[in-house]
């Protein structure tokens, strides 16, 4: 754990809620609206944190524990993310698996908490969430597999730093395919359009939002914050994968480029959300599996290239 990673964690900790703001801003831009402020989520979180919670009669202790567990596991995952193209706070062989599964732990709590209130709608969201994330998992690993094969390294930060410029030049198609598939995973895991529409008002079509229908106050604040953090983590992964940090030597430059990268990711997400509609629920599994197929095509290309 060095100073860079501490800075990174602090920055992430503080800046995570900006990303949804940026996305919303982009969407507003496309829609020709002024839109909410970039820092809107901060306001929301602070507002919620001041309120006292109200629970359903049906809710058990799990409803109370879950937000904390979700936040803790997401934060724990954050410590494993490469900090500004450098080593992550905690890094070891196979750390990415721990990261993926820590996010999975958060999901476990999210889903079971949704079932805790005995609401039909929340159960519905939960049932969708578990399936989509289960399907997304293999394509995540497929992308990872190619990068490991290329870099012969098992630590996330090392993998990213070893993805040399050469690789970009020689195999742009492969990297692009991985990028696409990981981006889809980002959309799936963070409940973005075209998978899920957080802003819809029809509960029947929701996935993520419907699971937290019953939460309010501090709990909701924690969950919203954890969600933003999760989006941050995924974006950081994509930025880390795309941008070769080796050639940028100074920390300030790294931070600057990283920030720029994150903004671009947010912009891209916003753009996608603006120009696409939410796809029909029955097509979502195909969509996710399709993204996995991209990664597998990349894998085949890689093998053929050898």
């Amino acid at each position: 754990m060095n100073i860079t990673s501490i800075i990174f964690i602090i920055v992430s900790f503080l800046a995570a809620p900006i990303l949804p703001g940026l996305i919303n801003k982009t969407k507003a831009l496309f829609g020709g609206r002024q839109g909410p402020r970039v820092l809107q989520l901060y306001y929301d979180i602070f507002k919620l944190a001041r309120k006292t919670p109200t629970y359903s009669k049906t809710a058990s202790a799990l409803t109370r524990i879950a937000p904390v567990a979700i936040a803790v596991s997401t934060l724990a995952a954050l410590t494993l993310v490469p900090s500004f193209f450098n080593n992550s706070a905690i890094h070891f062989t196979g750390d990415i698996i721990l990261m993926a599964y820590l996010l999975g732990l958060g999901r476990f709590f999210m889903v079971t908490a949704a079932l805790d209130r005995g609401s039909a709608f929340e159960g519905m969201g939960a049932s969708r969430e578990v399936l989509y994330s289960a399907l997304a998992e293999p394509s995540f690993f497929a992308g990872l597999l190619i990068m490991i094969h290329e870099t012969a390294s098992l630590e996330l930060s090392e993998i990213f730093s070893k993805l040399s410029l050469n690789f970009w030049q020689e195999n742009p198609a492969i990297l692009f395919l991985i990028l696409c598939s990981w981006f889809v995973i980002l959309l799936v895991e963070n409940a973005r359009i075209p998978i899920d529409d957080p802003n819809t008002h029809l509960e029947l079509t929701m996935i993520h939002e419907v699971m937290i229908l019953d939460y309010g106050a501090k709990d909701l604040a924690l969950i919203e914050y954890a969600s933003a953090l999760k989006l941050w983590i995924y974006s950081a992964l994509i930025v880390g994968m795309v941008i070769n940090g080796e050639i940028i030597t100074s920390l300030t430059m790294q931070i600057a480029i990283f920030t720029l990268g994150m903004a671009i990711v947010a912009f891209v997400i916003g753009t996608i959300e603006s120009i696409t509609a939410r796809i029909k629920l029955v097509f979502i599994p195909k969509f996710i599996v399709g993204s996995g197929a991209l990664a597998i095509i990349a894998l085949i290309l890689k093998v053929a290239g050898n």
Binding site: T112, L115, S127
Partner: peptide, 24 residues
Amino acid sequence: LGLGLIGGLAAALFTRSFGLVFLG
């Protein structure tokens, strides 16, 4: 890929059992 899928499905399975038996 296999373990990834298995892990995801197992989570789906046991959130279901845990949630439906003990919660609600």
